[in-house]
Design a protein around this nucleic acid. Structure first.
Lengths: 338, 338
DNA sequence: TTGTAAGCGTTATCAC
DNA sequence: GTGATAACGCTTACAA
C-alpha cells in the first residue's frame, strides 16, 4: 500500500502538495498537478480513509441501527434500499449495524457507530424507550435521528407515523362495509407499532358502540406462520367473524392461507386487511387489502434532515426543525377493499 | 470527547498504560487498573475507533457489496440477516455497501471498502465478470470472497450453487408428472443465475427428447409484476401449456395471480414452480412449489472462511482452501408438488 | 510494572 | 504556489 508520502517523493513534491491536489483545495500549478497525478497513477496510490477521517473528523458515513427482528421480509428491504439510495445521492455511505434483540444491544450499536465517528446516526428502535432515546440525543454531539417513534423532548429528531390512526382507519373501513365481528391479529406486543395498531382497532369499535371481544383478538408475531396459527386458534375456538384485520401483511397472508385451507373463501366469506403494503401484496391474493406504512418516506425524510444538519453545522442549526413530522399511513384500496 | 491522554492524566499514569488496561495486553498492576477504570468512568471516555484502526490496521469490520437490484424482497433480507448474525457471532461488524447497478459501481464499492481498511470483503456480484473478480482478488491483500459465482482462478475464494442443476431438477419434476408443454419465465438475462436456470430447463427438455419451444420462454425481470406480464403475454399469444417454471418466487406469484384472474386454476389446470423458496412461499398459494436457493448457507460459509483466513494470517494460509464449494439447491416439495 | 517516543496516513496552519 | 510541521488519537516496541 503506497502512501501519500511515496507519491510525493515520486512526484518530487511534498505531502502537502499531494494533499492539495487530491482535495482540490488551495492553489497548485497545473504542471505540478500533472506530475502528481502521474505519480499517483504509477504508485497505484489509494487514500487511507481511516487516516483521512481521523484528521478531518468526518467520515461521510451515516450509520443505521435496525433490530434484526426486522430483518425478515419486504419491509426491511424497502427500508435499506431507500436509505442506501438516498444517502448515495448525497455522496455518503450507509453503515448498517445490527441492533439485535434487546435495548442493551441497541445501545451498543449506537455506541459503536459513535466510536467509529460516523457523521450521523439513524435509529429504527425496537427496544429502547423514547426517554432513553431523548437522553442519547443529548449525549452525542452528532446528529441522531429516530424513525418510527414520537420523542417527547427532541421532536425535531424523530419521524413517525400514526399507527393508531391507521388501525382506526382500517377498522372503520370494515365497519362501513357492514362487518360487526372483526377479528384482530396483533403483532408482537412488545412493539409500540403493534400496540398502537391494536388501540386504533379498539377505538374504532368503541366509537360506533361495538363491543370489544377479547376472544377475537389473537396475538401474532409478525410472521406468516403466526398469522396462520392465529386463524387456527380462532377456528378451533369456534369464533364467528366476517373480517380479519392483521397487523401486517405477512400475517394476513398466513391467515388467508389457513382460511382457504378451511374452505372459507376470501373475501367472499371473510374479508382480510393487512398493513405495510408489501410490493407483492397485490399479486398474492386478489382479496388482500393493505394499509401502507410509509417506511421509505420516513427514511428518506430523516436522511434529508441529517444531511442538512451536517451541511448547516449541527449545533448551530439544531433548532431549525421545530415541527413534528407525522406521516399518515394511507389505506390502499386494493382491487377489492371489502 | 475525552481522549486517552485525558484519562491518563486523570489517573496519573501514561497513555500507554491506559492503552494496556483497555487492550488487556501487557502487565499492569491491579491498583493502577482500578485507577484507570475509575478515570475512564469519570471522563466518560470512549475509544476513537478511527485512531485505533489506523494504528493497528485492523478494523473488525467486514464489508459486503450487493447490487441494489437485489435489494427488494426476501432473498435480500435473508442474505443480510445471515451475514449480520454470523459476523456478530464472531465479534465483527458488517458494513453494507451498495453495488448499485453497474460493473463500475461494483468496482467502486469494493475500492471504498478497501480504502476504509476493512478486514475482509464479501461480494455478491451482479455485473462484474468472473475474470475481473479474479483480478481483484489478486490485487488486494485482504481476503476477498465471492458469493454465487464460480471463479476460474481463485476457486477457494468463491462459493456458488448449481443453478443449472436445479433448473434441470425442477423441469424434470414437471416432466415426470407428465407435463409436456412447460413454459419458462426467465429472470433478467444479464444475470448469470437467470441464464443458468434457463439452460437447465432447456437441457432437461432436450434430454428426454422434448422440443424447446421459444414461444414458451418469456423473459421476466425477477419482479412479481414481470411474472404477471409474462403470463399475460403467453395467454395473449394463445400458447398452450400445462406448467410454468418461473426463475424466482416473486415471478411465480405474479404468474399465478394472472392465471387465477384468467380463470385458470393452479395447480388444477396449470402447475407452477418458482425458485428461492422465500419464507412466506408456502403460505402464498397452496399450489406454489419452490426450489430453495441456499443463500444463507453460502453467506455463512463465506464468512467462516474469511474469519479463518484472518485468524490464521491471510497470506500464509491462502492456499488452505483448495476444494470448490458447491452447494446444491434442493427442490422443496411443497404441500403439492405437481 | 510503567513511561517515552516513534509511528499509522492524513489534513491544515503557517511561513517562505 | 509550495514545503515544513504540528495535529488527529491510538498502539507498540524499547527503555527504565
Amino acid at each position: 500500500m503506497s502512501t501519500m508520502q511515496e507519491v510525493a517523493n515520486k512526484a518530487g513534491v511534498s505531502k502537502a502538495t499531494v494533499s492539495r491536489v487530491l482535495s482540490g483545495k488551495g492553489y497548485v500549478s497545473q504542471e505540478t498537478k500533472d506530475q502528481v497525478f502521474k505519480a499517483i497513477e504509477e504508485a497505484g496510490y489509494r487514500p487511507n480513509l481511516l487516516a483521512r477521517n481521523l484528521a478531518t473528523s468526518k467520515s461521510m458515513c451515516i450509520g443505521l441501527v435496525v433490530t434484526n427482528t426486522l430483518y425478515n421480509g419486504n419491509y426491511f428491504s424497502e427500508l435499506i434500499s431507500q436509505a442506501a439510495k438516498k444517502l448515495d445521492a448525497n455522496g455518503r455511505q450507509l453503515i448498517l449495524v445490527d441492533g439485535k434483540h434487546s435495548a442493551e444491544e441497541e445501545r451498543e450499536a449506537i455506541q459503536f457507530l459513535h466510536d467509529l465517528r460516523c457523521d450521523g446516526i439513524i435509529i429504527y428502535p425496537r427496544f429502547l424507550s423514547v426517554d432513553e432515546m431523548d437522553d442519547i440525543i443529548d449525549k452525542y454531539n452528532k446528529p441522531v435521528m429516530v424513525v418510527n417513534r414520537k420523542l417527547r423532548k427532541h421532536q425535531s429528531h424523530c419521524i413517525y407515523c400514526d399507527h393508531k390512526g391507521s388501525g382506526l382507519q382500517a377498522t372503520n373501513a370494515l365497519i362501513e362495509r357492514g362487518h360487526r365481528n372483526i377479528a384482530f391479529i396483533t403483532g408482537s406486543m412488545d412493539s409500540p407499532t403493534a400496540i398502537e395498531r391494536l388501540s386504533g382497532y379498539k377505538e374504532a369499535l368503541t366509537a360506533v358502540g361495538l363491543p370489544i371481544n377479547d376472544a377475537l383478538i389473537i396475538s401474532g408475531k409478525w410472521s406468516a406462520a403466526s398469522g396462520a396459527a392465529a386463524v387456527e386458534a380462532l377456528l378451533a375456538a369456534g369464533q364467528t367473524f366476517s373480517a380479519i384485520l392483521a397487523s401486517n401483511d405477512e400475517m394476513a397472508i398466513g391467515a388467508m392461507k389457513k382460511l382457504n385451507d378451511a374452505g372459507i373463501a376470501v373475501p367472499a366469506d371473510v374479508s382480510v386487511i393487512g398493513f405495510d403494503n408489501i410490493p407483492t401484496a397485490p399479486f398474492l391474493i386478489p382479496a388482500l387489502s393493505s394499509v401502507k406504512d410509509p417506511v421509505s418516506d420516513m427514511v428518506s425524510e430523516v436522511i434529508s434532515q441529517i444531511i442538512s444538519m451536517l451541511d448547516g453545522g449541527y449545533l448551530s442549526e439544531q433548532n431549525k426543525f421545530v415541527s413534528e413530522l407525522i406521516l399518515r399511513e394511507s389505506v390502499t384500496s386494493g382491487p377489492d377493499l371489502p
